[in-house]
Design a protein around this nucleic acid. Sequence first.
DNA 1: CGTTACGTTTACGTTAACGTCACCCGCTCT
DNA 2: AGAGCGGGTGACGTTAACGTAAACGTAACG
Lengths: 139, 139
Amino acid sequence: MILNPKTDKPELMTIREMCEAFDVTPRTLRFYEQKELLFPIRQGTKRNFTRRDRARLKLILRGKRFGFSLEDIRQLLDMYDREPGQQEAQLKRTYQLAQERLAVMEQQRDELNEAIAELRAQMAWGEDMLASFRRSGAA
Amino acid sequence: MILNPKTDKPELMTIREMCEAFDVTPRTLRFYEQKELLFPIRQGTKRNFTRRDRARLKLILRGKRFGFSLEDIRQLLDMYDREPGQQEAQLKRTYQLAQERLAVMEQQRDELNEAIAELRAQMAWGEDMLASFRRSGAA
DNA sequence: CGTTACGTTTACGTTAACGTCACCCGCTCT
DNA sequence: AGAGCGGGTGACGTTAACGTAAACGTAACG
């Protein structure tokens, strides 16, 4: 295992090491490779994940927390890979996507809040019913 | 079409009428029947939806807004159908389910809020980048 | 040499809630 | 009689993100 002289961390990691480091299953990493989200170096049949793969995976997982689909994430990641020459255009595109996502998320949150309020109201009603049961002695 | 003397609304409704009244597709209603959520009267092969079906459908759609699965909803609906004799137990069960759902929904909302905040921070960063692009004259 | 551990590939299974398609039936208008 | 309309019944398709199982390789341990 080759270590980085600065960090003493392995330059290349096996699938197991990746799984433990990022708390994902091997299946997930193979799946991401198949979907062209990761590009581990293949030594024969085995995978060696590089720093680049780790950086990408970190972004992938963050993207998922944001609710981006894997396909969205792949496109964003790819943009940053192409020989950067239109940095600004890329950044704008990313920013726009983020804005759209943000709008969706905020709407979801609002709907969720509405549903929560409605459900709370129903539950208050149910509580009254239960209280009346108790008063009527149906223990 | 038989009308209710009080409301002048049809006692029985066709699948089309139901679709318009509740903004769902025929497929959805057939699907709900198959899943034993609705029990329209079958005249030969055609469906006649009763007041009871409409009441159930209303609850089904509300339940969906709350994030309940159709299976959850079916169980709740069924509880209210069985010869009511343990009203209190049923109500308690419903109340408990509602509490669990509420907890899930609130957690989802909180996570969403966190993700929104994180995404906002990233976007502020991106905005700075864009601004610096503009200052550097890369129009 | 057997087994254990870790890795691989291929390919089908899962889940929810319908959408879609092909084909059939009966009524009504013209 | 033909043409629509409205409804009906299977049954397969869709989507995302993996899970799972089968069958194989290979390297080290004892």
